[in-house]
Simulated assay, not measured.
Amino acid sequence: MENYSVFLPCYSIGDDEIYKKIPGICGLYGKTAVVIGGQTAMAKAKESLLAGIADSDISINDFELYGNEASFEAAAALCENAAVQEADMIFAVGGGKAIDTAKIVGDDLGKPVFTFPTIAATCAPTSAISAVYHPDHSYRTVRIYAAPPVHCFMNTRIMVEAPSQYLWAGIGDTLAKYYEPTFSGRGRELEHFNAMGLMISGMCVEPLVRYGKEAMDANKARQGSYAFDQVVLNIIVSTGLVSNLVDMDYNSSIAHATAYGLTTLEQVEKNHLHGENVSYGVLVMLTMDNQSEEREKIFAFNKSIGLPTKLADFGITVDDLASVLDKAASVNDIVVSPYEITRDMFEKAILDLEAFNKTK
């Protein structure tokens, strides 16, 4: 039998009071922390963070900007920072890019990382990877870690006050965390961890369809709710569990390949969010794989919260598809599939989805 270890995310969720759990959880790892994050995120969280560690043995020695991109260069600069070097642990505050940068720093310096998401857009707070970019914002690579951050503290009071576009895109990206692993793993003998990850992936769709619209309404009203909490947990925790359990080969497929294809078009790259693109890719995937009932369900859901269902939603037409199709058919994401996926199949699925839109 192969020897391996699995490390899964730990988390706490609540309002400002949740930060009062910091001393009991983080105190096992040291007494001093440095906060690394985005400017807006740290401003939103600072008062609550300081209140959470008041009258405890934990102290924060500084608040440091992560930079302007999740890059190796930004992480290297932080590793040279005296406050970062002197801290026992790293508190990563903000969205995916800030947290992914802090995870690189923690890994390079051998310091434990604790995450404090201020938006619910990705599973970066609970995943054992960082999406790394070049300083010019072009994609570079994925960095993989032995384990996810030690603990994630989700303050839903802060998150519900964030712009709703982040939750919206997070919902779109999370939908793929069920359809892609189950597609890629279809017909394969799956080890325990992969099989468990695929089972958990079901949590990445049904709660979103059930609570997504209500959660979006709560976010726009800046008013917390049960539905909002459930969607946050699915975006950050359910996807994080799947990401940590399932092999990279099963973590991405047609939906992400479509999204990467779309970003070859400047108007899409500049004006549309990753999760938005992925949600459209899910519909392309369900169309290609002839999952008509699931397509009907996700199509209706996308419509209900304004996620894209057709090319016009991106301001493009079928005449713009050449580079989209070339890119989508060339990425490694589609290599592990139950059948060979070709450029013609992407084209047919997109055109079939366009025709389906006209029936609605």
Rank of each mutant, 00 (worst) to 15 (best):
N244W: 02
I144W: 04
D313I: 11
D352R: 07
A218N: 06
P117G: 10
F72Y: 09
I236T: 15
C26W: 03
I144V: 15
Y178W: 15
Y66C: 02
A82W: 02
V282W: 07
G67T: 07
A54V: 05
Y139L: 12
I200D: 02
D344P: 00
P135Y: 06
N290S: 13
I305Y: 07
L321V: 06
T40C: 00
F116N: 12
G38S: 03
A43Q: 12
T141C: 13
A176I: 08
D249F: 02
R186Q: 14
F301N: 05
P9K: 09
G14K: 01
L325C: 03
F314D: 07
T141A: 14
L307N: 10
E354N: 01
A75C: 10
G110I: 00
A146P: 00
Y179R: 06
L198K: 07
A355D: 14
P117N: 08
A45Q: 03
D319L: 05
N332S: 14
R188H: 09
Q267H: 05
S48L: 01
D108V: 11
V84L: 08
G306Q: 01
D229M: 03
A83C: 11
A176D: 04
A54I: 00
A255N: 05
S201L: 02
A255R: 04
V324G: 03
H134V: 04
I334K: 05
T118D: 08
E266A: 15
P338S: 08
N251A: 09
G212V: 08
Y166N: 04
T287L: 04
S323Q: 11
I236D: 12
T115I: 07
I350G: 08
A257W: 06
N3C: 00
K21S: 12
N277Y: 00
V34Y: 01
P135H: 06
I36V: 11
A75Q: 03
N219H: 02
A146F: 03
K310R: 15
M159A: 10
V237F: 03
L167A: 12
W168V: 00
A176M: 04
E293W: 00
T264M: 13
K97I: 07
G315K: 12
A215E: 13
E69R: 02
I341A: 14
M288V: 11
Y11F: 14
G52D: 01
A92T: 02
P23T: 11
E276N: 11
M159L: 15
M1Y: 03
N357Q: 10
L109K: 10
L273M: 15
Y179I: 07
M154Y: 10
L351S: 03
L167M: 15
D100F: 07
S5G: 01
T263A: 10
R157E: 14
Q267Y: 01
A41F: 02
V35H: 02
D88H: 04
N277C: 15
A83W: 02
K270E: 14
G170W: 08
K97D: 07
K97P: 04
I119C: 05
V278C: 04
V209L: 14
E2T: 06
R186M: 11
M216E: 10
G106H: 06
D173T: 05
T258I: 11
Q85L: 13
L262K: 09
A328E: 08
L198T: 03
L233Q: 15
L167P: 07
F114Y: 08
G240Q: 10
C26I: 09
I25Q: 13
V113W: 03
V132Q: 01
N61Q: 05
A33I: 11
D173A: 02
G275K: 03
V6C: 11
A121K: 09
I254A: 10
Y133F: 13
